[in-house]
Computed example of a mutant assay.
Amino acid sequence: MSNSRYPSNWKEIANAVKESVGWRCQKCDKLCLKPGEETSHLTKSQRRAYTLQVHHWNFNPADNRRENLAPLCSGCHLYYHRFGRGNISPGQLELELKFKI
């Protein structure tokens, strides 16, 4: 049994969020890889760069309300974690994300 703060159905939640945006990063609009997509022509680094992840605006993986989740490519996801935007509300971040692009 895992002591993860993510729910047992996290994979389904994350896939639904990614599918809802057509597998595009919501910050840079990069089209990312879908499950089962052919990737043998890509390097490991390229596959990682085109991996869509789901970011929790409030940095709480137990809070999986749709407004708290943002599909981001790995580079953009790292950006939000690196620059510690946890002190901004999800609504403010969503507006910031939409208008900074």
Rank of each mutant, 00 (worst) to 15 (best):
M1S: 11
S2T: 02
N3Q: 11
N3A: 10
N3V: 11
S4Q: 10
S4V: 03
R5G: 09
Y6W: 05
Y6V: 01
Y6T: 06
Y6G: 03
S8A: 12
S8W: 11
N9I: 11
W10L: 11
K11T: 14
K11W: 14
E12T: 14
E12S: 15
I13C: 06
I13K: 04
A14C: 09
A14T: 06
A16K: 05
K18A: 04
E19C: 03
E19N: 10
S20T: 02
S20D: 02
V21R: 07
V21M: 11
R24N: 08
R24K: 14
R24T: 07
Q26Y: 05
Q26K: 06
K27D: 06
K27E: 09
C28H: 14
D29K: 12
L31D: 11
L33P: 02
K34N: 15
P35I: 12
P35A: 15
G36H: 00
G36Y: 03
E38R: 13
E38H: 10
E38F: 15
T39E: 07
T39W: 04
T43Q: 03
K44W: 13
Q46T: 07
Q46M: 05
R47T: 08
R47E: 09
R48V: 13
A49W: 01
T51K: 06
Q53C: 05
Q53T: 06
V54S: 07
H56I: 00
W57N: 04
N58H: 06
F59S: 01
N60M: 03
P61D: 03
P61W: 04
A62R: 04
D63L: 00
D63N: 03
D63H: 00
N68I: 07
P71E: 00
P71M: 01
P71R: 04
L72P: 02
L72V: 04
L72N: 02
C73M: 10
C73V: 09
S74H: 08
S74R: 07
G75Q: 03
H77Y: 05
H77E: 02
H77S: 08
H77Q: 02
L78K: 14
L78V: 11
L78R: 15
Y79W: 09
Y80D: 08
R82V: 03
F83Q: 11
F83V: 13
R85Q: 09
R85I: 12
G86M: 04
G86C: 06
G86E: 06
G86P: 05
N87T: 07
I88K: 14
P90M: 03
G91V: 05
G91A: 02
Q92L: 13
Q92T: 14
L93Y: 01
L93G: 00
L93T: 00
L93P: 01
L95E: 09
E96Q: 11
L97C: 15
L97Q: 12
L97A: 07
K98P: 06
